[in-house]
């Protein structure tokens, strides 16, 4: 589904993008994600396709706001039955709750349900309208941080099974990794869209790279066969737009900076020598800072740290493989 919307108030924005399967629209707070979602639901005045000009009650969308807005005075099944008309409302509502795996909680009030359960009741209520698309506002925000990944995974699985195109807006990169289609939004406009692996591996500009968690980003000068960063030549294959003499940005993810093993033959290129300034455990990995002619954030999987047994203050070599170095157009900021 193609979306083309223009909004004037409360934020001016014009966007054009696709919704395809479970689509995640990623953007920082304040760029107008929620406003766009509300506009699609008909709750904010806007022009555009689809559904332009229809009042909210006539749009075939299932809208789940950030706080889910379950009716507090109704039980789970009464919430789900709210949009239903005609006979057997209770049976149909119970069948919907069964579809989201919550039949046993049908008679509970929203305040007796967990964040994930509320989310599924809200989903069942939205499904009761037979929507053409689902609109999810920050679906990770209502969830307990400890179980977030699992609950979210189940929700996305459920939505995929229902086969309804979905637009989820979020600033959480975790959600972006589960997407079938990823759209990155900047202030009032779309910066990039595509399959998530493509967007993740090849952000089109600095802003997108920052949003997607590229921690090592450097202004670079393009040279034949590579770039120069802080007077170090890094070899990489240049895209067609890159002309020697131009300035650009080069980025590498912290987890893709590789520490050279002394017991192996050294790689041939893009080796940096320096000192490990710090190293801290981060979940099951280790996060460190490498200071050579370039300062780099590094993230080591625990099996690597188990083998190398690195400690702060130690001298080491890292390699920036050309394949993992990503070049983006742009002036220095």
């Amino acid at each position: 589904m193609e979306v083309h919307y223009r909004i004037r108030k409360p934020i001016a924005l014009e966007v054009r993008f696709r919704i395809q399967g479970f689509t995640v629209l990623l953007g920082e707070s304040g760029v107008g994600k929620t406003t766009l979602l509300k506009a699609l639901a008909g709750l904010v005045p806007a022009e555009g396709r689809p559904y332009g000009g229809l009042p909210p009650e006539r749009r075939p969308v299932g809208y789940l706001p950030q706080d889910l807005a379950l009716f507090p005075h109704m039980t789970a099944w009464e919430n789900v039955a709210f949009p239903l008309r005609g006979g057997n409302r209770k049976e149909r509502a119970l069948a919907l709750l069964n579809r989201v795996g919550l039949l046993e909680h049908a008679h509970k009030r929203p305040n007796q349900l967990s964040g994930g359960q509320k989310q599924r009741v809200a989903l069942a209520r939205a499904l009761a309208r037979n929507p053409e698309i689902l609109l999810l506002d920050e679906p990770t925000s209502a969830l307990d941080p400890l179980t977030k990944d699992q609950v979210l995974g189940e929700l996305v699985e459920l939505i995929r099974r229902e086969g309804i195109p979905t637009l989820a807006v979020s600033h959480d990169p975790i959600l972006a990794r589960m997407a079938d289609w990823l759209v990155v939004m900047g202030s009032g406009t779309i910066l990039q869209e595509g399959p998530p692996e493509e967007v993740y591996s090849a952000p089109s500009q600095l802003l997108v790279a920052r949003l997607l968690g590229y921690e090592n980003l450097f202004p670079a000068c393009i040279e034949p066969g590579g770039v120069e960063v802080n007077r170090v030549h890094l070899r990489l294959s240049l895209p067609p737009w890159a002309q020697p003499g131009d300035t650009a940005w080069v980025g590498i993810r912290a987890e893709e900076v590789i520490v050279v093993r002394q017991d192996r033959p050294p790689p041939l290129e893009n080796i940096l020598e320096g000192v490990l300034v710090s190293l801290h455990p981060e979940g099951l990995a280790y996060r460190g800072v490498f200071q050579g002619s370039i300062r780099l954030q590094i993230l080591l999987p625990r099996h690597v740290q188990a083998r190398l047994n690195l400690h702060p203050g130690q001298r080491l070599q890292v390699v920036l493989k050309p394949h993992y170095l990503h070049l983006m157009p742009g002036q220095m900021d």
Partner: peptide, 27 residues
């Protein structure tokens, strides 16, 4: 009153009188 409740009630296809009788008034 949480305004989101009224918004969501509308997106669920309710005319204004139903929003009032089923959501606003009971709360």
């Amino acid at each position: 009153l949480d305004r989101n409740l009224l918004d969501v009630a509308r997106t669920l296809g309710s005319p204004w009188w139903k929003v009032w009788s089923k959501v606003v008034f009971p709360l």
